[in-house]
């Protein structure tokens, strides 16, 4: 019986169809809430809450943290993006589960060691976290969301993301190819 469970993962959706679905979700978000999607904002809230629980005085003294901590009327975790990212976690898992793609693994090219890949992952994440705060959003919160309502800053940001990635891709080829 257990052999029957080991299945080859289903192929991915047609990219245009997936894009259409994603676009409709984004549209729904605008129609219902008047705002788009996001991700990095939820992590900022989580960071602020974590720092606030360890060093409250430090957190309230910092303009960045205090902005995410709100006015103290209700828990800062009762935030739109926090609940949205929770949904992303669940939605991703369910989709992966239905397609047989939930599997512990490290995604990388064949020419790089696992430990090196993980160090790169942390380092890339740090750049992303820092950059996303500077740009007031990440690929979902700024490029996708702002792109759909033709926000000037979002389009400039999006061009820079692709530009930066293509410029630096050469140096990272051993990791992926």
């Amino acid at each position: 019986m257990s052999e029957k469970l080991v299945k080859t993962p289903k192929p991915y959706m047609n990219p245009y169809l997936a894009g259409l679905g994603l676009g409709l979700v984004l549209l729904m978000s605008y129609v219902i809430m008047g705002r788009g999607l996001g991700a990095s904002g939820a992590f900022s809230t989580a960071t602020a809450v974590a720092i606030n629980s360890v060093a409250p005085a430090h957190a309230t003294g910092n303009n960045f943290y205090s902005e995410y901590l709100g006015d103290g009327q209700q828990s800062p975790l009762k935030d739109w993006l926090v609940f949205e990212v929770l949904g992303v976690l669940v939605g991703g898992f369910i989709s992966g589960m239905f397609a047989g793609r939930v599997k512990k693994s490290i995604e990388k090219g064949p020419r790089i060691a696992n430990s090196k890949r993980l160090i790169f992952a942390v380092f890339g994440g740090m750049l992303m976290g820092f950059g996303a705060k500077l740009a007031r959003g990440c690929t979902s919160g700024q490029a996708l969301t702002g792109g759909a309502i033709l926000n000037l800053g979002s389009w400039a940001f999006m061009m820079c993301v692709f530009g930066g990635a293509y410029m630096f891709a050469y140096f990272m080829r051993r990791q992926w190819l």
Binding site: M1, S2, K4, L5, I94, V102
Partner: peptide, 19 residues
């Protein structure tokens, strides 16, 4: 998270779709 989603997961598991 407490009822609907675990129900979906367990229904799949019971029907041998996933472990």
């Amino acid at each position: 998270l407490g009822i609907v989603i675990p129900l979906i997961i367990q229904l799949m598991a019971v029907n041998n779709k996933i472990r």
